[in-house]
Nucleic acid binder design. Structure first.
Length: 694
DNA sequence: ACCCCTCGAGTTCT
DNA sequence: CTCGAGGGGT
């Protein structure tokens, strides 16, 4: 039931009407996107939006940070619901050189304990350059689709994926629960036609099919997605209610029978040589495929072997991506800028004459460090070859010497900090006498660049996570002298308007945004110990080491007590995973009076929460296990990986700290030692049982 | 004295 | 994503 648009005459009337329309639109959006059940026709919805935007055009002061108009264009990601992946969507390791194919196969064999002669089947398939996506079917019906996101949590794009013709709404013969995973992409021909249409309509065009596909899938309005011919190939799966294949190749075939599109260039290979041959064949066909690919993916065919191989950190040991050489471009290096990081590291960045590489305009590229510049002999004014490493981060590959301008001098790396003029030194390793690769500013407590970077880190997402206090704001507040130390952030509200105009009168701030900022700061006055430690920005103490220390000491007082005495370094190094270097750095941090003062000021403002007692998970979690003798059902590496997955530690020798010994046939002296220490000893079968089947 | 892996720190662009 | 260094094990 929509009212006829009434002209709003006064600001007050406009404000009321604006709020009312906003609420109505938000409600429709919610039904549409989250519940997938639109409550009004498209025409009615569009009408609402038009009136909403017209009001903002007439009364610009209405278009504040909360405006729907901002949320839509600016950050559509905010509007998609999050989806937690039942099985994480991880990434693949990369190889670039032909020889590495052989190495990959050898590594797999070694891990499995297979001889060089043993057959090892692998699949090879083109690596589509699109967006990976998971599509969940229940009882054959498409139920939900999500993007990869960070691998653990993606965005719900169900409504959009439903509009893709290549994606069936029903599967036939698939397990009751079946999560198909694959790549959403766009074909060259469709891309060209659509981009032309976008340009004609005066709408933004896309640099490449991949970006166009990404832009289309992340459209808030599924109607737009529907008008974009996206395509899909299934090549993997997530949660599945029952096994549906025993090999990778068989799984691909099965997905084809279910009705999912699969890539016809998938091939079963018997050797590294065959993999490489198929790589060559795909490479030769690359230009004729009609869609972008950026390499070839190799996977161990036998699914049982895949499971045994498992994962190293974030990528499977049983698969890898053989990438095509990255696209390269030449451009002029116009300047070398020296940036100062949070830890004082001086990093040279090449300022390039903008150039398109792999569909993206690149203007900056890291030069890593002093030695790197010398090794490549990069000089200002040089013409350089640029590529995007792993097709993402731009890097300078080499200098085109013939085009060096006469008189170009070798680059002189500064020996003082560009921000504070303190000496910038390369630390010398006491043992080897070798100089550290990075040159660091020594003005740790006086350098403004380090202070600003430190504050950015402090407020960042995985530290204090203060919303609305981003890099820009911190730079501004620092420059204006409003915030110089972390504690200053928490006194902002109290000091506001005292010795300078109140924040709400600053350019770029308004009543609402200032209130939101202050509220966001107050919301973080209580913080978990591990985050607090991480936020301090102590060198070598990243998220993991902060968590290790926090877990070990439990609360702030205990940690501080451990970190202060003269022999603190030794004490800290007793924490599992913390070695002498990290321990020393932490002890030094606490020994510095200015840090102590800054901490006191900060603790005056915030409360540090103790760590909750570590939840007892699996009975083996936290235990130290020793394997001895030979194992028959798995290799040593597998057993180790299994133990570590459960949070246990694997050690090679038996000591008083050992909790459990797994002894296979042929166990000798270790078994005797285990008895001597009175350590519980079990056989492989019992191990498999306790570790949960394997 | 190595080797492998993990962690930290730095960087790009949409 | 990549590099280098730290930690822990062989």
């Amino acid at each position: 039931m929509t009212k006829k648009p009434q002209p709003a005459q006064t600001l007050a009337m406009a404000r009321a009407e604006h709020a009312r329309l906003g609420a109505e639109i938000a409600e429709h959006d919610k039904r549409y996107y989250q519940e997938d059940a639109p409550s009004v026709s498209d025409a009615e919805y569009d009408d609402l939006r038009r009136r909403y935007l017209a009001l903002e055009a007439a009364f610009p002061e209405l278009a504040d940070a909360d405006s729907l108009s901002r949320k839509v264009g600016a950050a559509p990601a905010e509007k998609f619901a999050k989806v937690r992946h039942a099985v994480p969507m991880l990434s693949l390791g990369n190889i670039f050189a032909d020889e590495e194919v052989e190495e990959f196969c050898a590594r797999v064999r070694r891990f499995l304990g297979l001889s060089e002669a043993a057959p090892l089947a692998m699949t090879a398939e083109p690596k589509i350059d699109g967006l990976s996506c998971t599509i969940r079917y229940e009882d054959g019906e498409l139920k939900q689709a999500a993007t990869r996101g960070d691998g653990y949590e993606g965005e719900d794009v169900t409504a959009n994926v439903r509009t893709i013709k290549a994606v069936p709404n029903r599967l036939t013969g698939a397990p009751r629960i079946f999560e198909a995973r694959g790549e959403v992409y766009m074909r060259h021909a469709d891309f060209a036609a659509l981009n032309a249409r976008q340009a004609e309509a005066g709408k933004p065009t896309f640099a490449n099919p991949r970006n166009f596909a990404a832009g289309s899938l992340r459209q808030l309005d599924p109607h737009i997605t529907a008008s974009r011919p996206l395509a899909f190939f299934a090549y993997a799966w997530g949660e599945v209610s029952e096994p549906f294949a025993t090999t990778q190749f068989g799984a691909i075939e099965a997905m084809g029978r279910f009705g999912l599109p699969t890539n016809p260039l998938t091939k079963l290979c018997r050797s590294a040589a065959e993999l490489l041959a198929h790589y060559r064949a795909i490479e030769a066909e690359r230009a004729n495929l009609g869609y972008d690919i950026d390499g070839v993916v190799y996977k161990v065919d036998d699914l049982a072997l895949q499971q045994r191989l498992g994962f190293v950190s974030r990528s499977p040991r049983w698969a890898t991506a053989h990438k095509f050489p990255s696209e390269r471009a030449t451009t002029v290096l116009e300047a070398i800028e020296i940036q100062v990081g949070r830890t004082g590291a001086l990093t040279p960045v090449a300022k390039l004459r903008p150039v398109t590489v792999g569909g993206v305009v690149v203007a900056n590229a890291t030069l890593h460090n002093e030695d790197e510049i010398a090794r490549k002999d990069v000089r200002i004014g040089d013409t350089v070859v640029v590529q995007r490493a792993g097709d993402v981060i731009p890097q300078v590959v080499e200098v085109v010497i013939e085009r060096r301008p006469p008189g170009a001098e070798p680059f002189k790396f500064p020996e003082t900090c560009p921000a504070c003029d303190s000496a910038a030194l390369r630390e010398i390793d006491e043992k080897t006498g070798e100089a550290d690769v990075v040159r660091r500013c020594t003005g740790h407590l006086v350098c403004p660049a380090q202070a600003v970077e430190g504050l950015k880190h402090f407020a960042s997402r995985n530290a204090f996570d203060i919303e609305g206090l981003g890099d820009k704001q911190i730079e501004l507040f620092f420059k204006e002298g409003l915030v110089r130390t972390p504690a200053d952030i928490f006194t902002l509200r109290a000091r506001d308007g005292k010795d300078r105009p109140p924040l709400r009168d600053w350019e770029g701030f308004g009543e609402t945004s200032v209130k939101n900022l202050f509220d966001a700061i107050d919301a973080r006055r209580s913080i978990a110990l591990n985050r607090f430690l991480f936020a301090l920005g102590i060198r070598h103490v990243g998220e993991t080491n902060a968590r290790r220390l926090a877990r070990h000491y439990g609360d702030w007082e205990a940690l501080r007590a451990a970190a202060r005495p003269p022999d603190a370094a030794e004490e800290l190094a007793s924490v599992d995973g913390i070695g002498p270097v990290v321990a020393e750095t932490v002890a030094d941090f606490f020994a510095e009076p200015r840090n102590e003062a800054a901490l006191d000021a900060l603790l005056h403002e915030v409360t540090v929460e103790s760590m909750e007692a570590v939840a007892a998970g699996h009975p083996l979690t936290g235990k130290t296990i020793v394997f001895t003798g030979s194992l028959e059902r798995m290799t040593r590496d597998e057993a180790k990986a299994m133990a570590e997955r459960l949070g246990a530690k694997v050690s090679g020798s038996i000591s008083g700290k050992t909790d459990l010994v797994v002894a296979g046939p042929g166990a000798g002296s270790k078994l005797a030692k285990a008895r001597e220490f009175g350590v519980e000893t079990i056989d492989e079968e019992e191990w498999v049982k306790r570790a949960g089947g394997g």
